[in-house]
């Protein structure tokens, strides 16, 4: 039960606020990129780009977007997220196996 209620010096509060602001800038940038990826994905489908490349590209765009969501919006890039990352990657690995199974060895 550490003394979390100790008063903080003013300059530290200011410093933290500044940091949060910096982080928020990154978040907005992330958001802009996510919108961009979404536009590209929809645009490719609407313009009927050669279908040989389109599906892998769509999937990569989705994965990148999700990585942004997890690492920036959900703060997985910050410290104290080691166990979180372990379990999310564990879940993702099982998820990947499941998807591969259902697209390959399900009789058709």
């Amino acid at each position: 039960m550490a003394d979390q209620t100790q008063s903080k010096p003013m300059h530290k509060v200011e410093y933290e606020k500044q940091q949060h602001k910096e982080e928020m800038k990154h978040q907005v940038l992330t958001f802009a990129l996510m919108i961009l990826f979404t536009l590209i994905a929809f645009g490719m489908v609407v313009m009927e780009v050669n279908s040989y490349f389109i599906i892998p590209t769509l999937i990569i765009l989705a994965i990148v977007q999700v990585a942004f969501q997890l690492y920036y919006f959900m703060h997985m890039k910050n410290k104290g997220h080691d166990m979180v990352a372990l379990m999310m990657y564990g879940g993702a690995a099982v998820a990947l196996l499941t998807i591969i199974t259902f697209t390959s060895i399900i009789w058709w």
């Binding site: 099982v94 259902f102 060895i105 009789w107």
Partner: peptide
């Protein structure tokens, strides 16, 4: 439908 879906889900 596909009955193998159950088998896979059950054994996963």
């Amino acid at each position: 439908g596909n009955v193998i879906i159950w088998e896979h889900l059950f054994w996963i």
